[in-house]
Design a protein around this nucleic acid. Structure first.
Length: 548
RNA sequence: GGGCCGUUAGCUCAAUUGGUAGAGCUGCGGACUUUUAAUCCGUAGGUUCUGGGUUCGAGCCCCAGGCGGCCCA
């Protein structure tokens, strides 16, 4: 936006020349006090017949932002770049802390260093200034600036130019203060990145909405926010290490798909201009990973994003990270054991223990073998009456009503059993538990149990009451698979928008022969939730939110 | 989709029955060479989410909407 003073259309006048000069010279600060302290624009309007420039949006900025912008301009006017390309940092703050962990108070080491950090606290006095610098991981170190080391000009510039939140460079000697605080005593300092916005109060929690909408600010002020990011990275890395240690190959399969499949979920749609066709964001990588197994990638995994066009709450996000892995010659028995190991190895890698401390301070034990509950038997126990794959829909509906549920009248046997089970059993599970042998009807891509009619070789893993993962002995008979998918497509045509589409290419792949295989899907965000006790929006760095 | 609650200074929050919108931190000016959320003195900062309505007068009451949270389906 054009403004007088830096736009040729609005040449400098004596009035704004003097204002500019005053701002550029710290010596004149006291003389300039009144004009800088007033609410008036620092750019006086000229009394001429030339058009008045349109009001700059900056004139409407809150006072504190305006002040910081003025400081930036003052630095520029004085020939100092508030955003230099390069600074001569010699050590991180953490390196200095590590190298001088047990110095006595009031010690001078003689070591000269250059350090950088964001100014988090400032304690300025007349001739000696203290500042707490912080670097990315939260490590803090004190900077000290004294009159006799940096000189009057640099000290005065420090006091007038530096605000909380600014990045600065400090060159000087590593010392400890009289109180014993490890510090760098400056002989030189400079601005490395001027912050134009004031930091929130460092000692009060940000409102949850602000934490999510402005995660960058959350990360600046809250150690826990920084820790969560690192915990998540550690968990993902541990997962990859576990897979690599077992000979798995990581692949990346399409997120833009012409058909959506692999799960019962509503997809997002998008559009390809070049292909002139609608595309779907994937709801699951399953059908592509199975193509991989057909092709001979016998141990294959993918960690990446799925998108489901559904609402969000404390356990759901429309965009979430998913782990899926498939292994030839594995079954739902062997992949349950491996899934348990993956979780336990992640806990060990990140926390050094399989007993994790949740965010509310309670401990959660992931160690050892985990409970296994067959679905029909555990539901029968909870009802006090036997329920089997042959139990009729009417009787199931009666049980549902007797237990305070009002299931959709359209629900069939399978979904009724699952709803009843979730209500009577699932909601009360706390310890890690595998629930096995689901109704065939609700598991279209799973093979029938090898010996028990009416159930599928499928398990769900419940941890702290929510579903963390699901595993199968995969259905690999291409003829049966075609029947199941055709039925799904029929449901879709009938208006069930969670049903899958018929993927002829996937069926063609299966017709080449897929070895007997086990497959597992696990929510990565949910794994974080399980290990930390956080809500899903705390485990995702930038969750989807409505625009402000 | 329904119900309830919230939305006030840069941030975190107050504001009696409807009667001049306040505090702390932050900012600005001043003092201070060993501070640790420094301290002391002074001072500035507001479209009370938006739009309508009632009233002599609305942050507060009414209507509609936005955003967020919680509970329910």
């Amino acid at each position: 936006m054009a403004r007088p003073g830096n736009d040729p259309r609005y040449p400098l006048t004596s009035a704004n020349i003097s204002a500019t000069l005053l701002r550029a010279h710290p010596r004149f600060h006291s003389a300039d006090t009144r004009s800088r302290g007033s609410r008036r624009s620092p750019y006086p309007l000229r009394v001429t017949d030339t058009p008045v420039p349109p009001p700059s949006p900056e004139d409407d900025l809150p006072e504190q932002m305006r002040v910081r912008r003025e400081k930036r301009e003052r630095l520029l006017a004085a020939g100092t770049d508030p955003y230099p390309v390069e600074v001569s940092r010699t050590h991180t703050l953490a390196e200095i802390r590590a190298a001088h962990s047990d110095l006595e108070a009031d010690t001078a080491t003689g070591e000269i260093v250059g350090v950088t950090g964001r100014v988090m606290f400032v304690r300025n006095s007349g001739k000696l200034c203290f500042a707490t610098l912080r670097e990315g991981d939260g490590t803090e170190l004190q900077a000290m600036l004294s009159l006799n080391k940096v000189g009057e000009e640099a000290l005065s510039a420090w006091k007038t130019d530096v605000d909380l939140g600014d990045h600065v460079f400090i060159h000087g000697e590593v010392i400890t203060s009289k109180r014993g605080e490890l510090s760098v005593l400056a002989d030189e300092w400079r601005m490395t990145a001027k912050s134009l916005r004031p930091l929130p109060v460092a000692h009060k929690e940000l409102a949850e909405e602000t934490r999510i909408r402005q995660r960058y600010v959350d990360l600046i002020v809250r150690q826990r926010a920084r820790d969560i990011v690192r915990t998540r990275a550690g968990v993902v890395r541990a997962l990859r290490d576990s897979f690599h240690g077992r000979g798995f190959i990581e692949v990346e399969t399409p997120m833009l798909q012409t058909l959506h499949g692999g799960a019962a979920a509503r997809p997002f749609t998008t559009r390809s201009n070049a292909f002139d066709m609608d595309l779907y964001l994937r709801i699951a990588p399953e059908l592509y990973l199975k193509r991989c197994v057909v092709g001979g990638l016998e141990k294959v995994f993918e960690i990446n994003r799925n998108f489901r066009n559904e609402g969000s709450d404390s356990t759901h996000s429309p965009e979430f990270a998913m782990l899926e892995y498939y292994e030839a010659y594995a079954t739902y028995d062997t992949n349950a054991a491996m899934t348990r190991e993956l979780v336990q190895e992640a806990a060990d890698a990140v926390f050094g223990s399989q007993v994790v401390t949740l965010t509310d301070g309670t401990e959660y034990d992931l160690s050892g073998e985990w409970t296994t509950l067959p679905m029909y038997e555990s539901l029968s126990d909870a009802l006090g009456e036997e329920v089997t794959p042959d139990t009729g829909v009417e009787l199931l509906r009666k049980h549902a009503h007797a237990n305070g549920l009002e299931p959709d009248p359209k629900l069939g046997h399978g979904k009724l059993v699952e709803e009843l089970w979730e209500h009577l059993v699932g909601d009360h599970l706390t310890a890690p538990t595998f629930v096995r042998d689901f109704p065939v009807e609700t598991s279209p891509l799973t093979r029938q149990h090898r010996s028990r009619p009416g159930v599928a070789e499928k398990w769900d893993l419940y941890v702290r009451g929510f579903e963390l993962a699901t595993g199968y002995s995969e259905l690999v008979d291409p003829v049966v698979e075609r029947q199941r998918l055709t039925e799904q497509a029929r449901l879709g045509a009938a208006g069930d928008d969670e049903a899958m589409q018929l993927d002829e290419d996937f069926l063609r792949a299966l017709e080449y022969g897929m070895p007997p295989s086990g497959g597992v899907g696990m929510g990565v965000d949910r794994l974080l939730m399980a290990l930390t006790g956080l809500g899903i929006r705390e485990t995702i760095l930038f969750p989807l939110v409505r625009p402000e």
